[in-house]
């Protein structure tokens, strides 16, 4: 599965498209990570645990989007966009969407 965030897949031509595909995941903060983050909140700096968490979650959302595209028989997703929104106190939704296409 090829993913790009431009309208085309460079070097290939789009034969057909299948419309919008999307993947999302909602994650709450991990208790153990939160304790470390609480300490880090005093001295500042990167919260490695959270970075990892966000990365994993975004990977999961992307994975779900890819699953959806696969169901449609696509082999690429173009114009992929990411969005993050906090839905509740301490929980965030990571959302990926794009257009499923078949390229040759």
């Amino acid at each position: 599965m090829i993913l790009t965030n431009i309208e085309t897949v460079p070097g290939k031509t789009i034969a057909e498209h299948f419309g919008l595909v999307q993947g999302s995941t909602i994650r709450a903060k991990h208790v153990g990570r939160d304790i470390m983050a609480g300490l880090k909140n005093i001295v500042g700096g990167e919260l490695k645990g959270y970075t990892e968490l966000m990365k994993e979650s975004r990977k999961e959302a992307t994975g779900r989007m890819i699953d959806e595209a696969r169901q449609l028989g696509a082999n690429a997703i173009v114009n992929v966009r990411y969005a993050t929104s906090s839905v509740a106190q301490g929980a965030a939704e990571l959302f990926a969407y794009g257009t499923a296409v078949r390229v040759e």
Partner: peptide, 22 residues
């Protein structure tokens, strides 16, 4: 211009969570 003779393309992401100090 480089898109025309591209051999490979893929989505790349990078993220960082940073906290401000007290």
């Amino acid at each position: 211009g480089s898109l025309a003779d591209a051999s490979e393309s893929r989505l790349v992401t990078g993220c960082a969570v940073i906290s401000v100090d007290y």
